[in-house]
């Protein structure tokens, strides 16, 4: 693997984790009685940018290297389900996450302007969904890495 691809893989993981940390922080602050909106907005922006950049670097690694060099090794190895189930699920679920992060950011801006319990519940649900899907995608990444033997 070239240095550039290795960097793309590292950035994919690190940026994804930063985004997960930021969306976790967004959720923990939004559900408070009086959320600190400055922190919430900054965290929601960090999450969105992190997910987008992780998406792009991951996509580059996937298209240029994974499909050609890693996938055949997993599929012909001991744990073909690591690709057939987990990577297939991961690559499709991950498509949703940046869009959820955009919705979460808009909801946070709206909540900052208007106090609305129904919107707060809906925004919390969207943010929690983004967090849970992000954690599942990260866990799937570990399983896929373990599938290469």
């Amino acid at each position: 693997m070239s240095q550039f691809l290795a960097t793309a893989l590292v950035l994919h993981v690190v940026l994804g984790l930063i985004a997960l940390g930021a969306i976790h922080l967004t959720f923990m602050q939004v559900i408070r009685k009086q959320p600190p909106w400055g922190i919430v907005v900054a965290a929601a922006w960090t999450a969105l940018l992190g997910f987008l950049l992780s998406w792009m670097t991951g996509a580059y690694y996937y298209v240029v290297h994974y499909g050609v060099a890693v996938k055949p090794r997993i599929v012909s190895g001991e744990f073909p389900w690591a690709h057939k189930i987990f990577m297939e699920a991961k690559e499709h679920v991950f498509l949703l996450i940046p869009f959820l992060a955009v919705v979460a950011l808009f909801a946070v801006y709206a909540l900052r302007e208007v106090e609305n319990p129904a919107l707060k519940s809906a925004a919390s649900a969207i943010i929690a969904t983004t967090l849970v899907l992000g954690v599942l995608v990260a866990a799937a990444g570990v399983i896929v890495s373990g599938g290469v033997r």
Binding site: L9, V10, V13, L17, I18, L20, A138, S145, G146
Partner: peptide
Amino acid sequence: ILSGFGFFVLARLEEHT
């Protein structure tokens, strides 16, 4: 978490899975 995943990535890059 960040350092834990760092170990995973390092293991993956060095093929010590």
